[in-house]
């Protein structure tokens, strides 16, 4: 059986889906982040001064890029896979000889593709406001892709359990967005008082944002190896959970 054809079919279908509806998927992050850069970076940032030796505009760029990657990788998979369930065309995949791993890879890679594309759009917008010389390309690209992978997997699990359109908006609105904002997008964790600094270190998104910031700016609040270990650990865990859910048919089969 030629699984690469099935994978390619699924991936192309996913990419076509989010590019076909680009006013919903690609345009809003460009406008929102342009406003972030303008208001927080330029208007307010000029009065804040520097953080870890970087201008405030430069300091927030990595976090805003990665926040977009997180949100769009997640929402692409959760909305696409839930719609597939809702419209019952998940059955097209279930009746076909497509292994669970290929189904998962197709949806997750679709999420990664959107995350990366949106990340590149946001990075492009940031270049209108500032010019960041990238310190560690390898670290930046690795964090970019791994973070996208992790949240695409999380979106998949959310979609598997979702029974209504409400269920696919709860996690992004009430978990992901707060954790992203509290993950050091706009500030250094060292600026937080005592106990809050310790609590903030329990937020996995903080590690990813700081690792990405290290890749772009060369500065970080956390250990980079630890950040990679946490991200990779979550990817392994969520991949195993996703495959188990598919194998058992939870949320998909009767």
């Amino acid at each position: 059986m030629n699984y690469s054809v099935a994978f390619k079919t699924l991936l192309v279908k996913e990419i076509r889906r989010f590019t076909r509806i680009w006013p919903q998927t690609l345009l809003p992050p460009a406008i929102t982040t342009a406003l972030y850069f303008l208001i927080f970076g330029k208007l307010i940032g000029d009065r804040i001064g520097t953080v870890h030796g970087e201008t405030y505009m430069d300091y927030i760029v990595p976090g805003i890029i990665l926040m977009s990657v997180i949100s769009h990788s997640y929402s692409n998979v959760v909305s696409s896979f839930y719609s597939t369930k809702f419209q019952h065309h998940i059955e097209e995949l279930l009746v076909a000889p497509v292994p669970n791993g290929v189904i998962l890879a197709g949806y997750v890679c679709g999420g990664i593709a959107r995350g990366i594309l949106v990340g590149c759009v946001v990075a492009g917008i940031s270049m209108l406001f500032t010019d960041i010389p990238v310190h560690h390309w390898d670290v930046a690209i690795a964090v970019f892709v791994l973070t996208s992978t992790l949240f695409a997997l999380a979106g998949f699990i959310n979609a598997v359990f979702a029974d209504s359109f409400d269920d696919i908006s709860i996690i992004p609105n009430f978990v992901l967005t707060p954790l992203s904002y509290l993950g050091g997008v706009f500030y250094s964790v060292t600026m937080l008082p005592g106990i809050w600094q310790t609590i903030a270190l329990g937020n996995p998104i903080l590690y990813m944002i700081n690792a990405f910031r290290y890749g772009l700016l060369g500065v970080s609040d956390v250990n980079i190896e630890l950040a990679f270990a946490i991200t990779a650990g979550f990817i392994v865990l969520l991949t195993a959970a996703s495959l188990l859910l598919l194998h058992k048919g939870i949320g998909i089969k009767n």
Partner: peptide, 28 residues
Amino acid sequence: LVPQEINFNQFETVRNVVLNQAGYYGIP
């Protein structure tokens, strides 16, 4: 399988509904 209820992606074109299914079966 031809199921009882309509279960294809209603936003896809007719050709893509069939082409995608061929892809899932590994047909080049």
